[in-house]
């Protein structure tokens, strides 16, 4: 079953996608790896931050893995690359 979720882009990911947020439709039992792959296909420039990105679903860290996420309608997925300035 497909569901609509909000993707929130922070720091470098907002710069790379040119977006602060967007709503996408994905399968509700998509894995975090598949979800990231989907975002990369939509925004190929995201590829460069793949190894540093923190992905959070419903404000909780999820590692990039093959585990299904069980997304619900309206869930927030945050894409958070590290900041290093100070």
């Amino acid at each position: 079953m497909n569901t609509e979720v909000s993707i929130l882009y922070f720091a470098k990911s907002a710069e790379l996608t040119g977006l602060k947020s967007e709503i996408i439709t994905v399968s509700s039992n998509v894995t975090s790896e598949q979800l990231w792959q989907h975002l990369e296909e939509k925004h190929p420039r995201l590829t460069v931050i793949r190894d540093q990105v923190v992905l959070a679903v419903r404000q909780e860290y999820v590692p990039l893995s093959g585990q299904p996420l069980t997304l619900r309608e309206g869930d927030e997925v945050a894409v958070i690359p590290p900041l290093s300035g100070g």
């Binding site: 190894d51 690359p81 590290p82 900041l83």
Partner: peptide, 29 residues
Amino acid sequence: ASALRMEGQLTVYNYRGGPCYRCLYPSPP
């Protein structure tokens, strides 16, 4: 902590069983 443009981040690392910076970011950008 860190900051850039209009954004900031904060975490306490290596404290009471929490992760360290490398746990979160094993490889540098």
